[in-house]
Design a protein around this nucleic acid. Structure first.
Lengths: 135, 135, 135, 135
DNA sequence: GTGGTCTAGACCACG
DNA sequence: GTGGTCTAGACCACT
């Protein structure tokens, strides 16, 4: 389920966090669902257990998961709304950085907007079930 | 002119590269313009000369600047077109990453687009004024 | 395996690059083979780790080797053909320089050719023997 | 008469040495001929006088020229034969290095020979008067 | 353990 | 004065 890209710039533990984060948002991991054990996942992903441990620890610090002593890690009963809100904040921050960078490089807002829209269109326009919900 | 953020995750030498890169793109440093000497800049930015040297060396490798023995570093007479093209490629790459991240977080393209446009509108509405100044 | 000449004009990090480059070309280091760690090699060659790091970094920039985070440096799976082609280009460049230098010194092409051939003949006549060994 | 390449890897003072060396071999500068003064040459070549001084100093150390106090630099009455012999020794050394490098890169002697001859043929086959001398 | 960044300070060649 | 190389030693993130 989780794919690790060894050659990516992104640290492995980050890739794991993102993947689990994603799974929670997608509803694959529900609140109070038990996560795979560190060793189990380490074997499956062919990764050092320390790396998994670090990913779990960080998620625990963020309140995304919690540990039961001797029993493993569980998904926090955080509302999806909260998660979505956090995700939006992160994305917002990255967009702001992007706009600043473009500006300092002498790329105008209109150019940036053009680039952005063309890339957005290229990106798989497949629409998931959730997005087809009637509002 | 160059500001170093000591607490940033971005390495100091990278911050310097970006700052100079941007200065060149913005036309502040013209082709064959002499850059501040390594020691000079080191003192000014309160950074070790080795760190500046690393930044300059990397820019030299990229062909952004060139050295004259015993005389210092100079801006390459690379055509602005080339630099702009590079800048666009970099921005394009970052937008693609952004889109991917948003996707993996379960943020739909339409939401992302909305966020992007609202941030773009907020960004420095002063610029248009300045450009409208009568000389 | 790598010998450093402290008195050479050639920088230590360059000597290291050349030695490894040659080892790869000679097939001693195969693609995806792990290189000695920076610290390890530093101790072995009695050189500062920074110097080794600089050599590795440069080879990485050239695409000759690649790093796995936290795991070390590995030989790039660049095709041997590419490497051989590069080697020929380098040698070609050096021959051209040689010819130019000889010219500017007033040494005629025929003289140069004579010198070259006599040196070539002297060079290790043992090799042919070895290649003729019956296995 | 002397051309300086600012962008060359070769130090300027070396370029000057080579040029004068060449002039002497070509018979343009005869023994006990007076060389241009340091300042004069510096102005003509648009080079720092220190650089000219270094070139002259080095040639003096090699016995190629000699100084008369207060009068300037003069070509040594060294026989051309000696100069030619020195030139050959230098070239010989460089050829030996070339052969070693090629070898360590896995380029066979026959390949090297082929490369060498093809480059030699390409190099301006113009033959000067001196080379047309009857032996 | 791995490499990456940074500082401090030294010596060198070049102009 | 300029940049280039090197050492010594520190702290960091990642596996």
């Amino acid at each position: 389920m989780i794919r690790i890209d060894d050659n990516s710039q992104v640290p492995i533990y980050q890739q794991i966090i993102e993947a689990i984060h994603h799974s929670i948002l997608a509803g694959i991991y529900k609140p109070d669902h038990r996560l795979p054990s560190i060793r189990e996942l380490a074997v499956k992903l062919k990764v050092n257990p320390n790396t998994i441990a670090k990913a779990y620890q960080e998620m625990s610090n963020e309140g995304l998961i919690y540990f039961k002593r001797g029993q493993g890690a569980y998904v926090s009963p955080k509302s999806s709304d909260e998660l979505i809100q956090e995700a939006e904040m992160q994305i917002t921050k990255r967009i702001q950085e992007l706009v600043e960078t473009a500006e300092s490089m002498g790329i105008s807002n209109s150019q940036l907007s053009k680039l952005f829209n063309s890339i957005l269109e290229q990106s798989h326009p497949t629409i998931s079930k959730n997005n087809q919900e009637v509002k």
